[in-house]
Design a protein around this nucleic acid. Structure first.
Lengths: 252, 252
DNA sequence: CAGTGGTCTAGACCACATT
DNA sequence: ATGTGGTCTAGACCACTGT
């Protein structure tokens, strides 16, 4: 196939990366929504003027990043947030003995605040920018085990109300997706140990100073823009944090 | 190309997975040692009787798992443990502010013991099996920050001596590789918060009960056999654990 | 220069899902 | 039967590395 010009943004990039970039743009622009199929490979090849192999290499990378999901015989789908996906890819707490279970979520509060310096830096916004702050209590095995302290930039989540958060029967990431059109694509987590302060101890019904796992999670959407900053405080007497590939482990 | 029979272990597996399996076997058998190049793609295609595309797909997976490393123009190399690789892929503690630094390691003790029930289970060996136990103290920024309590099955590390561990100027994984022919291919980590007990507090020079990050790491070699069980106790006032893909993050 | 891996093509056939 | 993704081939050309 004769290649005359290769796109306006081809800075020596391999062709399949250009294609990947264009797919990302289309996804970001909402051309295909979460849960929908994208066009068949053959059609996409025509659209981008590349061969199957090249198109597949672009899609390969997007599936490896859990942005697209392929189903043989059915099509290629835009990844959608669900309870299962949350458990598999974003919730890293599991019991030391026994099987992983979904936490019971109890809404505590929703407030509008101004971001302090540290939060603003982590969110990539200016200090003092307005944010939504949500506090939840999560229970595992019937016992309060985790406090989630969540900050959301108003830019993405302006009209969020307490009722929206309280009445939902989905994960928060589904709420972001369905009500605000925000797709969480990946997260990054940093962990430390801390002693429970007065507020957390009260919410969890434990003694002040009890060792807790403190997780700082940043959730990113397209272009690596941060859309959520979450502090989780976890009682780790019966549960632990699992750092694993989860994905891969395919076969020898 | 005419395919008559496809290997003795072809249980409906794709051809490229068979090839991957055979490459793994050759690596496990030491046909190519860490740091060496494996034969050029063309030669491997002849050896396995497959086309380049198929061979490449097998090698792609092995490079994604950090078992092989490709260098354009130079060849494909068997991954070898080095200080840099340890920092990049296995040492997940970094300062809350500033750049990642390599820890100073101080040898505390090496003993031969019998594995208790919990350790034996995690190592995949029988209770009471003999193991080597190493304790190290790691310092960051000049201050003691981590205690490593390491268990190694005697099956792999029988003749290990305190001098071997004390006198080395490499990472432990390099020692496993160079002196015992054991290749650590991947690790799995579980984290919890705990209060420092008397022994750990003493070794770290902190108060008993200080909240610490407790990391339980299992290191695996070929066939997912566990070759190391490591308990790390980390002071997280200035440092934190980073859970990240590290790899990927390739490009939009 | 020769040799290596990196990209790309064009097309065949297979396996699976749906109609 | 049709359409989807999954595998595989055979070969071309490019980019990088070392001699």
């Amino acid at each position: 196939m004769e290649t005359l010009f290769r796109s306006d943004v081809a800075l020596g990039l391999p062709l399949y990366r250009e294609v990947k970039h264009k797919l990302m743009e289309a996804l970001r622009d909402g051309e295909w929504k979460p849960g929908e199929t994208i066009p068949a490979e053959k059609r996409l090849c025509e659209r981008f003027g590349v061969s199957v192999g090249t198109l597949r290499k672009a899609v390969d990378e997007l599936t490896a990043e859990n942005i697209l999901i392929r189903h043989q015989g059915r099509g290629t789908f835009v990844a959608s947030h669900s309870q299962d996906r949350y458990m598999f890819g974003f919730f890293h707490i599991c019991p030391k003995v026994g099987h992983k279970e979904y936490p019971t979520v109890e809404f505590i509060s929703l407030e509008k605040e101004k971001a302090d310096g540290d939060s603003a830096r982590r969110l990539g916004i200016g200090k003092g920018t307005r944010v939504v702050r949500i506090i939840n209590r999560l229970s595992l095995g019937g016992k309060a085990a985790i406090i989630d302290d969540i900050l959301l930039p108003e830019r993405y989540f302006g009209g969020m109300t307490a009722d929206q958060v309280r009445e939902r029967h989905t994960t928060l990431y589904q709420l972001y997706q369905d009500e605000f059109g925000v797709a969480v694509l990946r997260t990054e987590e940093r962990l430390e140990a801390c002693g429970a302060n007065e507020q957390i101890a009260g919410l969890l019904g434990i003694d002040e100073g009890t060792p807790l796992l403190h997780i700082v999670r940043r959730a990113m959407t397209f272009r690596d823009e941060v859309v959520e900053l979450r502090h989780s405080y976890v009682i780790t007497s019966d549960y632990e944090y699992y750092a694993g590939e989860e994905a891969m482990r395919v076969g020898e």
